[in-house]
Design a binder for these strands. Structure first.
Lengths: 200, 200
DNA sequence: TTTTTGACCATTTGAGTAAAATAGTCGAGA
DNA sequence: TCTCGACTATTTTACTCAAATGGTCAAAAA
């Protein structure tokens, strides 16, 4: 689910690979379709055979990164058994990934600032994925008797707010450097978040 | 503490009152110092006798509103005894206030978008106030034996993240209307946040 | 002393213009 | 199925000029 269908098409892969390089270097605005086309030795029009718009290429590039993060996160979560442990690992892994991606995506800051719509689709996609992950995790924990029973609506709200909080923390990690000390306490935070819904 | 010293100066009060009206109607950018000055029957230069910059006037106007919110919040918190009850009331009261202020401040959205620095001072002020409030509340709860003992650093992190989360929720309430249902569950949320640090 | 003012300055903003760049389309053809 | 060059419609850029605006200051008024 939600993989960025790069697979099995060498041209698409080449486009995405070069696009990632150029976008990463010059940002969205300063990278033209011409640039990308030239870089793979094709004409601009050819790109439009594979991708409908420039935004679509951008989103595909980011999706590759997101898939990588997801793989990593789920891989980590699979190494432990209980819901609390999984939650803690998810919490810390997600932020670990963010730290790595800060440099890579700092070029887009200006682009996103003046065109918030750029990240809208990606953001929604990410939200829905994270919420699903959290949702499933809670159900899993309830089934195992580690998390207290909650109504569907409560689960949904907790899920949304927890995701929101993680995003807020992520943004801080992204923007402010003095928030490094939050990083040291991710485990403590995951704990308090989880305690709130643990079985007594 | 942190009152906006409007008191005892009728001219400053008049400036702020008219400025609030104009700023609320036209926003920051479209309200000129001339406009404000004319509205109170003085020359533009006179404003600079009372306030150093246009931003200072803006901040003072917002500060009046913040003071009102603070008074209300602390008033509500004073009506109950225990730390958990105080926290719940703080949580719900703060968001109740936000709901009311949405219309009032929607004019500034464009201004803040293209000039984030406008809200920087105000935001920092607000953060530090909220964090102090939360900090004191935790100490109070620990003293009463309702909240489990925590290190200073843990308290500080919990405080920052809780404030961050409240701000994130507030922003959602501000921007998105479909988040109305979060409002219905504020009490549940306050509960889960608090459970995380309650004494077992 | 405290408050207010108009003249003044330095910068920013707004409207307008023309040329260049760019995203996206299309029919022809490999 | 895939690629291309020519083409179009729209944006962007660089530029100019006049008006507007935030802020200063010395002098006057209260």
């Amino acid at each position: 689910m939600s993989n960025s269908q790069v697979s099995k098409d060498p041209v698409r892969e080449e486009i995405l690979s070069k696009a990632a390089e150029l976008l990463g270097r010059f940002g969205f605005k300063k990278t033209t379709m011409e640039d990308i086309a030239r870089a793979i030795g094709k004409s601009k029009s050819a790109l439009y055979y594979y991708y409908k718009t420039k935004e679509e290429i951008f989103e595909a590039v980011v999706a590759v990164d997101m898939d990588e993060n997801r793989r990593l996160t789920e891989e980590m979560m699979a190494t432990v058994e209980t819901a609390p442990e999984k939650f803690r690992l998810m919490f810390t892994t997600v932020f670990g990934n963010i730290r790595e991606k800060i440099d890579k995506f700092s070029v887009f800051r200006a682009d996103v600032m003046e065109n918030p719509a750029l990240m809208e689709n990606i953001g929604k996609e990410r939200d829905s994925y994270m919420e699903t992950l959290l949702h499933d995790l809670i159900l899993y924990g309830i089934k195992r008797g580690e998390i207290r029973a909650m109504s569907d609506e409560e689960i949904s709200v907790w899920t949304k707010v927890t995701n929101m909080t993680m995003r807020a923390i992520g943004q801080r990690l992204f923007l402010e450097d003095n928030f490094a000390y939050v990083e040291k306490h991710l485990d403590f935070l995951a704990g308090t978040f989880l305690n709130g819904i643990m079985k007594k």
